[in-house]
Write a protein that binds this DNA or RNA. Structure first.
Lengths: 201, 201
DNA sequence: TGACGATGTTACCGACCGGTAACATTACGT
DNA sequence: ACGTAATGTTACCGGTCGGTAACATCGTCA
């Protein structure tokens, strides 16, 4: 008897196939690492055929590009969501961002900053994915500097850099330190301290 | 004519072969990532035969174990070198560590914290390499807490956690931010600020 | 109905991966 | 001088990688 009956041939149009593939890539690339995940795993997760991937995306590298863009969009969504809570108080907006970041990074499913992970995965600084990461971080530093200025910091650039270091630290620590150390619990207070110190005349 | 003459068969004893293999692994695993480097690349770099590797190390995983131990020793060497400069001034010792860290992380050949990189490379928290990393970080936090206590901080655990976040941030930022942003230049001053603020009565 | 374009399926390619067996060669103790 | 143990060399294993060709099947529209 045939216990391994073939699943019915399901047919999806190109657009939904591309969407499912991107969803699968976002999940797997983030959770396992883009270099650790093969295209076969992506199509399996997406429930589509391998040829459907290569008819929608020219290569795995292009899929990686689309993944990075999605992560970028998602990241700025997080930032905006935090900042919008305090549209007229830049210092409060900064504090809000760190509180929300500590919340996110404490989630057990959190796997660190996707851009930090990319930087680790690809050794060459000139790799297109690394360049994408550097752009994202540059924009983040610019946003932090702008907020520090609006908050009235004496040295906005210095405050922004200090906060940027803290942010990267939260990303990395979420993966390196065991959860029991509760390192992230110190994140909001430390950020508050830096912000407050930057305001003193 | 034979333009591709075989290199002479050089023969090295087991101990020096093992040492050369470990040196090669340390270089390559750190620079390219342990998962991105194959055993063939290691033996090529070491200038030994592949069988010499598998006669000295039971598997690539054991080579990874030895690599981690080497990196751990090297790391605590860095720490001790900084702290020994101020044996009777814990606050100064902490500041010294951050100054030295900023120096190291600013080197163009720097490829971030080897333990952070391991945490990115291996998704499962239970993987032996991840456990090793968590142990290293736990010991670092303990050392920081001890120093914060000796320095007279009001809340040593809080200061230690803040400094630990900054350290992880420096590691990650060295790879994610473009060198032009000079984010690391803000590291010593930010650490000094946290240390000073923790002393206020 | 029939034809055409889009999709699914299978099989395959060359390259690399970690790891090993079999054998050639060398160094060294007796 | 000879035998033995350690080392070097070659070839290979099964598995996975990114990517593709060939063909079967489907939906759609004339």
């Amino acid at each position: 008897m045939n216990t391994t009956a073939k699943p019915p041939r399901t047919i999806v149009d190109a657009d939904t196939a591309a969407a499912r593939i991107l969803d699968a890539a976002e999940t797997l690339f983030y959770r396992e690492g883009s270099r650790n995940v093969g295209v076969d795993a992506v199509v399996r997760e997406a429930g589509v055929n391998k040829m459907s991937l290569y008819r929608q995306f020219s290569s795995k590298d292009e899929l990686l590009r689309r993944y990075l863009q999605r992560r970028d969009d998602r990241f700025w969504g997080y930032v905006d969501a935090s900042l919008e809570l305090h549209p007229h108080d830049a210092a409060a907006a900064l504090r809000q961002f760190f509180a929300d970041l500590a919340e996110r990074a404490g989630n057990p499913a959190y796997r660190g900053c996707p851009f930090v992970n990319i930087a680790v995965e690809y050794p060459e600084r000139e790799h297109f994915a690394r360049v994408f990461v550097a752009d994202n971080k540059r924009q983040l530093l610019q946003k932090l500097t702008e907020l520090a200025t609006r908050a009235g910091a004496r040295d906005p650039a210095a405050l922004a850099k200090g906060l940027a270091l803290l942010i990267e630290g939260a990303y990395a620590a979420s993966q390196t330190y065991a959860p029991e150390t509760e390192l992230l619990s110190a994140l909001p207070a430390t950020a508050d301290l830096l912000i407050a110190a930057a305001m003193l005349s």
